[in-house]
């Protein structure tokens, strides 16, 4: 190769190097965005086993459209007397569109008073957020909420 490198060559090399970095960054994007409902399904199977979730009792309160997915308020309420004989044991919140489908799992006792939690969650894209309540008798109730996201927060 010639020892005479012109300014144009150097610029070309810099450009190629920079383009390479860019290409790597773009190539990693699909991995980041790889979050599908089936990942959520796999996690749910691990969390609740083969219980058949029933509708009702669980209510997700959340906006229908989020401007930013960085910290979106969510409240989940489960109808339950919260007595020793009949209470919610665990409440799982699962995301269908985030890189990690698990959001949080809350473990209640009769001393929790009511099965209700509020927090803020990240949202990578427009998706469905699900909540599963495991009752003390072993039954599972579930709810879903679709939320549109304009700016990713993951």
């Amino acid at each position: 190769m010639s020892e005479h490198r012109t300014a144009a060559d150097v610029r070309r090399r810099d450009f190629l190097a920079a383009a390479g970095v860019g290409a790597v960054a773009v190539a990693t994007l699909p991995r980041m965005a790889k979050a599908e409902p089936k990942d959520a399904d796999a996690l749910v199977a691990k969390l609740i086993g083969n219980a058949q979730p029933k509708d009702g009792k669980v209510r997700i309160q959340m906006k229908d459209m989020a401007e930013s997915g960085a910290a979106e308020p969510i409240s989940v309420t489960v109808d339950s007397p919260m007595t020793a004989a009949d209470h919610v044991k665990t409440l799982h919140i699962v995301s269908e569109g985030n890189p990690n489908p698990g959001v949080s799992s809350w473990h209640f006792t009769p001393r929790s008073g009511k099965a209700e939690v509020s927090f803020r969650m990240r949202l990578a894209k427009t998706q469905v957020v699900r909540a599963y309540a495991v009752m003390s008798d072993g039954s599972v109730h579930a709810a879903r909420h679709e939320i549109k996201v304009t700016i990713s927060g993951c």
């Binding site: 799992s105 473990h107 929790s112």
Partner: peptide, 29 residues
Amino acid sequence: TWNNEVVTSADWHPSMSANPFIVFYARAT
């Protein structure tokens, strides 16, 4: 915990927002 007895606990994952703000309840015993 309330007098060292667990009332509510939670496992959190990376989808929880930064600077977590949470609300939950307890029965006054």
